[in-house]
Write a protein that binds this DNA or RNA. Structure first.
Lengths: 198, 198
DNA sequence: GTCAATTGATGGATTGCGTCTAAGAATACT
DNA sequence: AGTATTCTTAGACGCAATCCATCAATTGAC
């Protein structure tokens, strides 16, 4: 493919430069009070350039997870059917394997200081929904009724996001996201609050 | 209480007038191509007035469900604990009881025509997350571990949204949302795709 | 070295959402 | 009449995100 850049002007700035500037400002002033112009000004680039690196302001925090979710969705649509859920477990385990999103973890642990509580809830919900949609499709393909497929898919997707959340809140130092996801999978097996309610 | 309006200028327009204008335009041009100014112009009111009735453009579609979710969240935070999940089932059943959201159903059934697929997914995810947050709090209060609480809460919340979705997609004529939710609760009891995967 | 092609950076304009404020209009109460 | 209350409205604002035309820097071919 491409070992070095083939042709054209080399990138003057990097994603990391922008992401660092953004996180600094989020911590100083809060998320809402930080505009894209503020971020680019601190990073020393023009406002236009920001959108060459990130598709939106919140993308600064979520691009790491978004990439992995996009890969997982690709993998999921490629699976013709998965009656016992083994493919799902494998793909989702790959998703969280060695996942260590610096900016996202920072945002989650400092969400109140950044004034991010609503924003994070909203953004997390979107990611969860994206993953759930792909999972629900696969479940239907595997013969699960539509209604059940939606619910089961939401459960799996929630397990992924809950694992990330639990990992971030536990200091992001002890244990990996993968470990937390393993916990989540175990919890799914016997959801006490759900099953006992039946 | 107030049987009639006590004092002050009476409302010149109504939510319904705006909602109808909005839905018409969504069907004609699509959601993204319809601006708030377009809606108010057709309804014959000023743009400013729109936000006296709805807090956002998407609120036109979701205010019905939002009201019910807000009530459910209030009820949920008022419950000290719910070890067997009976309170949860009751509150969520109340949520969907006799629910018949005209605009939302229209949007869901015509989502592709309205260019709403992404928008609806996003908005539905937000509502699901709001409900899930309150449910997760109650689950933790009831002694469920944090990770498990998040997952179980997501499952319940997904059941509500899936019921609404299934009801809208089945023509919104046959059966009620409550019936679909009953189906969903039954499905939760033995989630085949989840439990068999353990 | 010169030239074209490619890739990125940049400024500026544009659209639209959502917020806010000050002014005015319509009603009820006294 | 006058006053308080409730609603409407025009207008301006800040900001996110898109788009475009232009400029800058690099590679490779000749």
């Amino acid at each position: 493919m491409s070992s070095a850049s083939r042709a054209g002007r080399p990138k003057a700035s990097s994603r990391e430069t922008l992401a660092e500037a953004a996180c600094e400002l989020f911590l100083e002033r809060g998320y809402d009070a930080t505009s894209v112009a503020d971020i680019t000004q601190r990073a020393g680039v023009s406002r236009s350039s920001f959108f060459n690196y990130f598709s939106s302001k919140s993308d600064v925090l979520w691009s790491g997870l978004d990439d992995r979710i996009a890969r997982a969705v690709e993998d999921l649509v490629a699976v013709p059917e998965d009656r016992d859920g083994s493919q799902v477990r494998r793909i989702l385990s790959d998703l969280v394997e060695d996942f260590a999103p610096d900016s996202l973890a920072l945002a989650m642990t400092n969400s109140s200081a950044m004034g991010l509580d609503d924003e994070l809830e909203q953004d997390a919900a979107l990611r969860q929904a994206r993953l759930a949609a792909a999972l629900a499709d696969l479940a239907r393909r595997s013969g699960v009724a539509a209604l059940t497929a939606d619910i089961a898919a939401a459960t799996w997707a929630a397990a992924v996001l809950a694992a990330v959340r639990a990992w971030a809140e536990s200091g992001a130092g002890r244990g990996s996201v993968g470990d937390r996801f393993a916990d989540a999978v175990r919890a799914i097996g016997r959801l006490p609050w759900v099953v006992s309610a039946t």
